[in-house]
């Protein structure tokens, strides 16, 4: 009997001692942190992809709480929903942003831009870019080593073995922008996803003169400017022999698509037209 009492007493004393120590240590070394940081972090996706420009979701949560300003802060993975929830925690209003998606602006598939050399070596676009212009000879085109694929934390991009080009999986892409940074040639761009995923873009970033570009690739933008003239919304600009469609201004009228002589302008997720469809090379998953 006495053993039980003694042991209880002894353990109780030890427990009390530790509790006191912990209590004081906790008071002394307390880190004061805004409780909203935890709350915000909780609603974030937790992918730690860095797409927001901050080191992980915690860093982003801290930034939100610190600034309280949503105009420059956006979680591309969580999108508007997360922004709204975070705004509720912070007690501010937030404007909705159009969802975006990564777009590969090169259509230099094996068929459109035949290989003139075979690349052997480290499967790294960054290195191949240092080494030479590319298997097709186009110094702007996709190198096909898949740096974008390995950079994607969401498995949203893969190399199509038939074309040698990366393909973005629409449902999985969170527009975090990792592939945009990974591509040494800046081929991938984040563009508005568009209503029902409909979007139109120039699938080429070649700034060479038309004839030179055309030599390497059948679907290169030759900078003829026809699309600029035909566009009723002034959404298309031409510089350095290259047309660019501003996705904020584009109204998806598709006039430029049929005007383009090389088929460099792609339309995605539109119902098929009755007449000719030029973008047969298009592969979407």
């Amino acid at each position: 009997m006495s053993i039980i009492i003694y042991s209880l007493l002894a353990l109780g004393c030890v427990a009390l001692l530790f509790a006191t120590v912990i209590f004081f240590v906790d008071k002394k070394f307390k880190v004061v942190e805004d409780p909203r940081i935890d709350k915000v972090q909780e609603i974030l996706p937790g992918a730690n992809c860095g797409g927001c420009g901050y080191p992980g979701c915690r860093g982003f949560a801290e930034a939100i709480v610190k600034t309280g300003d949503f105009s420059a802060l956006f979680c591309p993975v969580g999108g508007n929903e997360v922004a709204k929830k975070a705004a509720v925690i912070m007690g501010v209003e937030v404007k909705e942003k159009a969802p975006r998606i990564a777009v590969v602006r090169c259509n230099g598939s094996y068929q459109n831009a035949p290989q003139k050399a075979r690349y052997e070596g480290a499967s790294s676009c960054a290195f191949a870019h240092m080494l030479f212009a590319g298997e097709s000879g186009c110094p702007y085109g996709c190198l096909g080593c898949g740096d974008c694929v390995s950079s994607c934390t969401f498995d949203a991009i893969f190399m199509n073995p038939e074309t040698g080009l990366p393909v973005v999986i629409e449902d999985k892409c969170t527009s975090c922008g990792a592939c945009v940074k990974a591509c040494p040639r800046g081929i991938i761009e984040l563009r508005n996803k568009g209503p029902k995923g409909k979007r139109i873009f120039v699938s080429c970033i070649n700034k060479e003169k038309g004839a030179v570009a055309r030599k390497n690739c059948a679907v290169a933008c030759i900078g003829c400017g026809k699309c600029v003239k035909v566009c009723p919304h002034e959404a298309i600009t031409l510089s350095d022999n290259l047309a660019y469609i501003d996705y904020e201004k584009c109204k998806l009228c598709r006039k430029c698509v049929s005007e383009c002589p090389t088929g460099a302008i792609l339309e995605i997720n539109f119902p098929p037209r009755k007449t000719d469809v030029k973008n047969t090379n298009e592969v979407e998953a």
Binding site: G121, A122, S124, A126, F127, M130
Partner: peptide
């Protein structure tokens, strides 16, 4: 292994 390829890339970066 493509050692020098990757080292060149490293040097560049």
């Amino acid at each position: 292994r493509p050692l020098l390829d990757m080292i060149r890339l490293g040097k560049n970066k």
